[in-house]
Amino acid sequence: MNNIVVAENLSRSFGRTEALKEASFAIGEKRCIALLGPNGAGKTTTLSILAGLLEPSSGNLKTSGELSGDRRQWMGFLPQQPAFFGWMTGRETVMTAGRLCGLSATEAARRSEELLEAAGLKDAAHRPVAGYSGGMKQRLGLAQAVIHRPRLLLLDEPVSALDPIGRRDVLEMLAVWKQEMTILLSTHVLHDAEQICDELILMNKGQVVMQGEMEQLRQAAGKPFLRVVAEESENASRWIAGLRDLPEALKVEEERNQCRIETDDMDALRDKVLRSALDQGVKLRTFEVGRKSLEIWFMEALRT
């Protein structure tokens, strides 16, 4: 995998508070990476350093060879509270952003129309930004941040302040864009990260706790399990007691009319359990396949 940015031992302090302590991580190409951590973990500081708004007190950033020079040229950034000139219209905002990023006037105009359409702001494009709602501003912020087709898009809490509909809109836009560029977004909500990100960088108290693929972390978080609940009867109790003997069952917790089975081979286990339930005429009430959630793992990781 190609890394476009590698951070080595980044530190930054504001006066006496150390916002970031020796953070090291790598950002690969065409991925969606979540910078996850509770408030005050150093996420915004990390993003500001990457965007070039802050200088690190120590440590350095290495960018891949082909991307030498001013990194602002191939980066897009959206801060936590996107700020725009209230007197500009939506279209002017996106146009100005494009022109400042070095696009020609015609190219900027073409991209603006495209992005305003994608952001659902076509009808509001001629209105001053001062009258936009929070969700509209966020979508406008996203549109203007990608106008120059950046290789790396940095988003600080892009969905935290949005209502469910605004959140869905933004996540949908990001899902499309992550095929073209790397997206690094910070969030304190694991659920948002799980929805679109491939990779996770977990931060706490200014330090990087761990970095890894979302799927790997999910695997590491715990084995998949099957939970069944049957309607109470003698038959059902006998059936549940018998599940213990299935060869796929690694660990079984049972309790009268319900049980929870951990396994490595979910497909085989699911088949057998369903079939035997039908054969023996057991009335199932719940049949659930799951995994120990990252949420629990996340809480544990932060505590240590």
């Binding site: 708004l53 001013d70 602002r72 950034f77 509270q81 000139f85 400042l100």
Partner: peptide, 13 residues
């Protein structure tokens, strides 16, 4: 203060 300076300066300006 209102962040528009940052809006301009995160671009190659």
């Amino acid at each position: 203060r209102n962040g528009t300076a940052a809006w301009i300066l995160v671009k190659p300006v």
